[in-house]
Simulated scan of single mutants.
Amino acid sequence: MAVILGPNRYGKAEIRLVRVARDAGVHHIKDVNVGSALSGDMDDVHLSGDNSAVLPTDTQKNTTYVFARKYGVDQIEDFALLLARHYVDSQPAVHHARVEIEEYFWDRVPLPGPRAERHSFVRSGREVRTCVVHHDRDGTTTVVSGLKDLVVLNSTGSEFSGFAVDEYTTLQPTTDRVLATEVSARWRHASGASPADGSHGFGESYSEVRRCLLEAFAGTHSLSLQQTLYAMGRRVLETRDEICEVRLAMPNKHHFPVDLTPFGLDNPGEVFYAADRPYGLIEGAVLDDDAPAAHSAWE
């Protein structure tokens, strides 16, 4: 039997970074979690322990902090591109860099008086903005933006009936149910963008894609969560030319009507038990049929 080394990469995970921009006494917060992973001509470190091609993961951590100080942190995609290109351009053994960033949102605390909304913040909900950037030595760059933990609910306008039935089926069809989910969405940009290319507008793109997802969720009379998923992805592709593929994972956060008849009460769709598990998990991709495949970009 022949034993060989397969695909491999290494890097620094979960580099916690908070960048405070002090603008004439008014502060702006960027709270991010950065991960970097490098691959390339590095077989010897695995096969013989030769570390000469290895840029230490501690150096990757330091690079993240230095770049935050030198260049600031505006759109997370732009910051990820800066890091990924740096690793490939500066290290001959690195042929591919992957940088992943999560961003956590903060809102200003409004206060009376002249110092209102200057330097006090409160964490904004659960929603997390995400991105993954891949950059190769041949210049190929892929940017996947996204969000996760976006919890949404329709209190009506959702049905589920006409499904397959076998001897183990107990679920009853319904023409009116609560539809709730926790959206994880990722979308691939049709082409990479330079950090200096202000026309690309990752911030505007994120806001508009998020708006499309929410509007499609709210505006679709749902016959299934699968139908809603497709409507959300389709709305993004039909609205935003810079996006060529959307991938969604949406757990069905079940809300079951509580039987109140033992207490002499009816329940006309007002009282529900919110079950956290088990849950249905609906996943799918919606893509522009003309877009080039980029399967590795999602890894």
Rank of each mutant, 00 (worst) to 15 (best):
F121T: 10
H119M: 09
V178G: 04
D289M: 07
A274C: 07
D289Y: 09
D138T: 06
L55N: 03
L47I: 08
I282D: 06
D41P: 00
S199Q: 08
L265H: 13
P112T: 09
C244H: 13
V18H: 08
S205Q: 05
F256V: 15
L287K: 12
G192Q: 13
R108V: 06
A275V: 07
V151F: 02
A185I: 02
H254L: 11
V94W: 05
A190L: 06
L214H: 05
D31C: 02
E208P: 00
A93Y: 03
D50Y: 09
H134K: 04
L83H: 06
W106R: 03
G192H: 12
V271G: 08
G25R: 05
D78Q: 08
A293F: 03
A249Y: 00
V32I: 13
T220V: 08
E283Y: 01
N154M: 13
T239L: 09
T57N: 07
F263W: 12
A249Q: 01
H295L: 14
T142A: 13
T156W: 02
R186M: 05
V165L: 07
A116I: 00
S52W: 01
V183S: 02
A285C: 10
G40N: 12
V258P: 05
V99A: 01
V133I: 14
G162K: 12
L171R: 14
V20H: 10
A293L: 09
P262S: 12
G11D: 04
V99R: 01
P268T: 13
A193E: 00
V209D: 04
V258W: 08
G157M: 08
D138Y: 07
V45D: 03
Y206I: 02
L55F: 05
L150V: 11
I29Y: 11
A24K: 10
H135W: 13
E127D: 10
T63V: 07
